[in-house]
Every structure is written in C-alpha cells, then in structure tokens.
C-alpha cells in the first residue's frame, strides 16, 4: 500500500499520537534483565538491542489466562452474566516478522469451525507494527519455515532500520495506513530503498515440505525417545511459542459468583491427555515430544495450510535442557 520513511526521533511523537488516539501500546521492555512485551507510556521505554523477547506477541491476542464466562448462582438457578473480557484497542510495536506470521496460525485455529470471539475480537482490535530483524542468532530459522527477517506477512506496518536516522515504513494493511495517516507529518515518501541490504542474514537450513512428507513414516521411529530422554516435561517451549495455542479451561469462584478461564496449556505436560480412568494416550515424554513436532510440522500443515512453527527459536532458547528444535529437525530429516 505504500512505502514511507520515518525518522527515529519521530517515533516518540508517533507513540504520543497513538496513545492520544485511545490505543494502548505494547512493546518490548526490559524487566529484571529479560525482554518482554509490556504496556508502555512513551517510546523511550522500548528496549533495543535484543534478538527476541522471551514471550512472544501472542499474548496480545491469546493471553496466558482470560475470562470466557461469568456466572452467578442463586439457589438452584444460575445466571450467566456478560463476560468482562473485552478487547482493548492495541498497537503492538516491535513485533518480529516471525511473531507477526504466527498470528495467522492463531487466527486459523480460532476462526475455523467454531469462531472464537475472544481471540477474533482481539486480533481485530490489534494493530501490528512489525520490526524487521537486523540481527539473528544461531536459534533463528524463520527462512526454513517460509518466513524472512523482513517478511511483511502479519504486520500492518513494518519498520526496517535503513540507516542511523531512519526506518523504512512499509504500509501493509488499512490498519497500518491509519497509523500513518494519524500522523502524516512524521512520514516522508521513501525513494528506492534496497531493504534486503539492511536485514539479518538467516540461512535456510531445511526443507519444510520434505519434513512434512517424511514425518508420517517416522511415527514409530526410536529417534523420538533418543531426542527427548533429556526433556524434563515442562511447558516452557509451548508457553514461549508464538504459535502454540493449546489451552485448559478452569473455573474459579468467589462465593456464589464465578468465572470460567481459558489458560495456556502444553502438550508437554503429562496430565494434558490423562483420562480420568488413569489411561494416558501419551503416557511418556517421548510421545509428548513427538506430538509437539508432529502437530506443528505434519498435522497443522494439512489442517491449516501452514506449519505451526515460525522459526523464532524461542523454544530452543528457553529450554532448560537444551532441546534445540532446529537441530532436532535436521536430525529427523537425516533419519532413515
């Protein structure tokens, strides 16, 4: 829809305009040495010089817990009340292209068959200002799963740092356009810019289609047990993942009033599939690790038309026992 440039020094004013337009801004901030998305009042609070936030931007549309029902009991009657979970108009600033891409996975899961208004309305009221990657690390593999350090997919407005003073601002959607038109004086027309020159170099490391093709035949392979012997069965990988969407539903009450909450859950947990009878279809960690890989790279491509992984590398960085997904995928592709 158009290419503009914006001066680094104008971002403060842009934040001011967005805020005064009634939107909250989530952006990467540093807290106790870690970088996380948090609400900011002004641009100087935004962290710089990091590869990835610990948690992804998915929390803007799929919070770690959220109300899906509100009720109260009066004797034998139950009243279902209006739930308080309403979307807050939000701009998420500094979303990496991998995170922006993951929004399409979340959208696909929550829109199909039974549309989920909580996720949908949050996606609808969220504007994504992406920030291309100028740096990457050994855990990044976006280009192997169909993304790129400067990919525009999922962003409404994508910023790419093109020199010390300026960002290229690519307007991708109408939401992005409305950000620009809220402060047209801050943007200039971009001439011919070779954007790629300013992006991180992330080499393609495996063939996603080949992986999808190979996985079904590897279901009974001993490689799952070999890879996951050191896996301790926590949910860190799922919780930091921008495209993991599995959840639990829990009721909480205060006297006669209560709420029903949707909370993040993980296929890595032993309890995830445990039946009341004690039977567990995925009773050991290797089966749960296999499910994680199968779901993302075999089942979801067929079901959603997209892999459930965007190559952000968060799971590998966060894993307490160095389960490195990129390395494991490469090993899977070498398995015979």
């Amino acid at each position: 829809m158009g290419k503009k440039t914006i001066n680094v020094d104008s971002l403060g004013e842009l934040f001011h305009k967005i805020k005064s337009g009634g939107k909250r801004i989530l952006a990467p901030v540093e807290k106790d040495g870690v970088i996380l998305f948090g609400e900011v009042a002004s641009y100087p609070e935004v962290a710089t010089g990091y590869i990835q936030t610990v948690f992804s931007a998915k929390e803007a549309v799929l919070p770690r817990f959220e109300e899906i029902l509100r009720f109260s009991s009066e004797g034998r009657d139950v009243v279902i009340e209006e739930e308080s979970n309403k979307p807050v108009p939000t701009v998420v600033f500094g979303v990496r292209p991998c995170d922006a891409k993951s929004l399409s996975v979340i959208k696909a899961v929550f829109e199909r068959d039974y549309p989920d208004i909580f996720v949908q309305s949050k996606i609808d009221s969220t504007t994504v200002i992406g920030l291309s990657c100028v740096n990457s690390d050994e855990y990044c593999f976006c280009t192997s799963v169909g993304g790129a350090p400067g990919d525009t997919a999922g962003s409404d407005l994508l910023l790419t740092r093109i020199n010390d003073a300026n960002y290229l601002a690519e307007i991708i959607t109408e939401k992005g356009e409305s950000i620009v038109s809220s402060a047209p004086e801050l943007f200039s027309e971009a001439g011919n810019v070779d954007k790629d020159r300013h992006l991180a170099q992330v080499n393609r490391q495996f063939d996603l289609d080949e992986l999808e093709k190979r996985l079904p035949a590897l279901f009974e392979s001993p490689l799952w047990a070999g890879q996951s012997l050191r896996c301790i069965g926590c949910g860190a990988c799922s919780f930091v993942c921008p495209s993991c969407t599995c959840f639990d539903i829990q009721d909480e009450t205060d006297g006669a009033r209560g709420i029903r909450l949707r909370c993040w859950d993980s296929c890595g947990f032993a309890q995830f599939t445990l039946h009341t009878s004690g039977h567990n279809p995925r009773g050991v960690q290797s089966k749960r690790w296999r499910q994680r890989i199968m779901h993302k790279f075999s089942y979801q491509p067929g079901e959603l038309g997209t892999a459930g992984c965007v190559g952000c590398g968060r799971c590998s960085r966060a894993c307490p026992v160095d389960m490195n997904i990129l390395q494991h995928i490469k090993d899977i592709l070498e398995a015979r």
Binding site: F110, D113, Y114, D116, T245, C246, F247, C267, T273, E303
Partner: peptide, 19 residues
C-alpha cells in the same frame, strides 16, 4: 473414541490424534 477434551470444538488440542 473418548479422548480427553476440554473445549469440544477442535481448539484446546487435547484430543488431537494424528490429523
């Protein structure tokens, strides 16, 4: 089949078996 379920509508992920 009677896999463990939470949502019943294909989102929570528990009852996923293959595709």
């Amino acid at each position: 089949l009677e896999n463990r379920m939470k949502c019943g509508i294909g989102k929570c992920g528990r009852c996923n078996v293959g595709k």
